[in-house]
Amino acid sequence: MIALQTNTFEFWAKYFPQLLAGLGVSLQLTALALLFGLPLGLLLALGTEAKLRAVRWLSVAVVEVGRGAPALVVLYVVYFGLPLLSWSPEAFICAVIGLTYTTAAYTSEYLRGGLKAVNPGSVEAAHALAMTSGDVLRFVVIPQGLRVAVPALMGFAIQIFQATSLAYSITVSELTANASGIASSSFRALEIFALAGLMYAAITVPTSWLTNKVEERLTLRQ
């Protein structure tokens, strides 16, 4: 076996580019899930507080299903469900749709918490200043609520980045999928998954550290 003759670092060096490409796909999935999921999450957060009962119930249902179903199940439903609606997007698109839904459902709760924490006095002052309800929401409630929610949202971003590994199960060539492929052809699973783990950590650890810093700064300003 030729593969067994190389040491771990040579082995890592050989497959690193392939894993790096996978990491690129993981990061793309994360970015797109957040890009589409966060605005949807904000809409759902506002929806669960809406005056119209139908809007409220619909929003709550969408959120609860999204939080109740495991992200993997959501991915399968999208991947196998969409073709039944005669639309068969490629696996990457399915992963983006599934992860977006999960992101929207979870972040809506963080955002709702943030909106509830907004100082009611400042909202009242905005109304007293003849600002329209839409302006009060846009310039007073949402910016304050977002600030409160930012640390929780950054924490969630780390989680959804890790959850992109689930896209492996619907054939997306992200980091875990590539590592798994290398593992089965080289029979050196422990070493390749150790490298994959290090690459995940290279993203998550600095991000957690940044989250703490941001949280500190936001607390200082209050």
């Binding site: 100082n119 006095g121 009242e124 002052a125 003849a130 310039f139 007073v140 304050q144 600030r147």
Partner: peptide
């Protein structure tokens, strides 16, 4: 409300 300004006990500035 355009014609009537109001000042509150707790100031109520926009903190952000």
């Amino acid at each position: 409300r355009r014609n009537v300004g109001m000042v509150f006990q707790s100031f109520n500035l926009f903190p952000h």
